[in-house]
Design a protein around this nucleic acid. Structure first.
Lengths: 143, 143
DNA sequence: CTTGAAGTAACTGTTGTTGTTACATTTATG
DNA sequence: CATAAATGTAACAACAACAGTTACTTCAAG
């Protein structure tokens, strides 16, 4: 599936930012975050751009600028993060339209759509159970 | 995510096979199935190969050969299909190991793994609620 | 022995992610 | 005002997965 690490990186970035802010560290820049994630700062900026569009973080430009959390960390769930960084649906329908003269080809798509809607609802409900606070609590418990 | 249509095609194929078998139609071949799905027979054979490895279908070779369901359709759930045709996990960890000297880089992975395990359990439970029988019932109700 | 179908290798085109360089834009500060 | 530091973004390459296709080998019924 070429599974996606964007969720993981986004959670890492947000947890890092919050820990940094709560400790009163220096401003959060893409370069400093990238050093913790071990990747390129542009990757971080692209991801933070998605999170900014979702209202989860804010950015300032210019010298001494950087990123800050836009919402209280206990109000940010992993569902918010998922919706911010995941583009499309989990499962796709046929690429080419199935044979409409076959009963299966004709009826399969609404049935599967209903199943997929239920699966995505379950996935969303599970992701909504964890907040950014919960993630950081788990991280700090590991020390 | 470049979402995956393999689940959809697999459910289509199995529903088609069962309808065909229950109507006493000609043997199910990859060519006839591909005509309903509107794709290439090799795509169907590859997918059926995965389903055969999972014990959901059986194949016979040689002239007049083809594919048959190996289990009662009411005992086959979409979870069985998902496990047969989906290779990896839904979410991935970091590609490169995060900075172990940073508390976040050190602790993030087990935390996210726990979250992802819960999400996959929820997804599995939801998929397990629908059987092949249920899929075909929905399809035939659409007519 | 012929025929029809599975099984599979190999290749192409498309798409998405990640990593990278480069550069324009913005803004605090000396 | 000039400089420095950081965002914002475009462009590109490497890589992987999926879908589609051609072509071939293997198998077994008749």
């Amino acid at each position: 599936m070429s599974a996606n690490s964007r969720m993981t990186i986004a959670a890492h970035v947000l947890a890092w930012m919050w820990l940094n802010e709560s400790r009163g560290g220096e401003v959060s820049t893409s370069e400093r975050i990238a050093d913790s994630v071990n990747t390129n700062p542009v990757v971080i900026r692209r991801l933070l751009g998605d999170l900014r569009r979702a209202g989860i973080v804010e950015s300032r430009r210019g010298a001494g600028a950087g990123w800050t959390l836009a919402r209280a960390p206990e109000s940010v769930t992993l569902l918010d993060v998922y919706e911010a960084v995941t583009p499309g649906p989990l499962f796709a329908m046929h690429r080419a339209e199935p044979n409409q003269r076959c009963p299966v080809g004709f009826g399969i798509r609404p049935v599967m759509q209903g199943v997929y809607d239920g699966v995505e609802d379950a996935l969303r409900a599970e992701l909504a159970r964890t907040t950014l606070t919960g993630v950081l609590r788990g991280i700090l418990a590991a020390r």
